[in-house]
Computed example of a mutant assay.
Amino acid sequence: MNETEKDQSVQCSSNTFLKGALIGGLVGAVAALLFAPKPGNELREDLCDKLALATDKTKEVAGTVSDKTKEVASVVTDKATEIARNISTRTSDVAKTVAESTGNIVDSVRSASTDVAHDIKDESDNISKEINKDLNPKV
């Protein structure tokens, strides 16, 4: 399991835990209110107050999650841009190195072929002279 999968697993576990805690808290609050010995009006007022409190908490959590999501998205964007820039730079460097190496190889092959051509011409001249000597001996 790589780091990204571990982070996603932890985030998923955290989200599930938060949802469970919120739902459990709401159910517990409603059960406490329903089993408390209060008249109907007071019970309804308490339920309204608790519902308003739960709504406020939910909005607060949603705002926090939204802020965190924006921060994570910003960090991911920055990292992706940095990685893309690095890849582009390295690709450019590799292309330059390949071009320089190709130029060097071409120059080396040219030089070597020129040297070989000169060597062949010199040897050919030497062989021609030897053959001419053998064919035309001077007495």
Results as ranks from 00 to 15, higher is better:
Q11K: 14
S14Q: 12
T16K: 09
K19N: 08
G24H: 00
L26N: 10
V27S: 04
A32L: 11
L33I: 15
L34A: 08
A36T: 14
P37S: 13
P37R: 14
L43P: 00
E45Q: 13
C48K: 13
C48R: 11
K50P: 00
A52H: 10
A52N: 09
A52P: 02
K59V: 06
K59G: 04
E60L: 07
V61T: 09
G63P: 01
D67E: 14
K68E: 06
K68S: 06
K68V: 06
V72C: 04
A73C: 05
V76L: 13
T81Y: 05
E82P: 00
E82L: 15
E82A: 15
E82R: 14
E82C: 07
N86V: 04
N86Y: 04
N86R: 14
I87H: 08
T91A: 13
D93N: 07
V94D: 05
E100T: 13
T102Q: 09
I105Y: 01
V106C: 02
V106N: 02
S108K: 07
V109Y: 00
S111E: 08
T114G: 05
V116R: 04
A117Y: 01
H118N: 11
D119P: 00
D119T: 13
K121F: 05
D122C: 03
D122A: 13
E123P: 00
S124W: 03
D125K: 12
D125G: 03
N126E: 15
K129L: 14
E130I: 06
E130G: 03
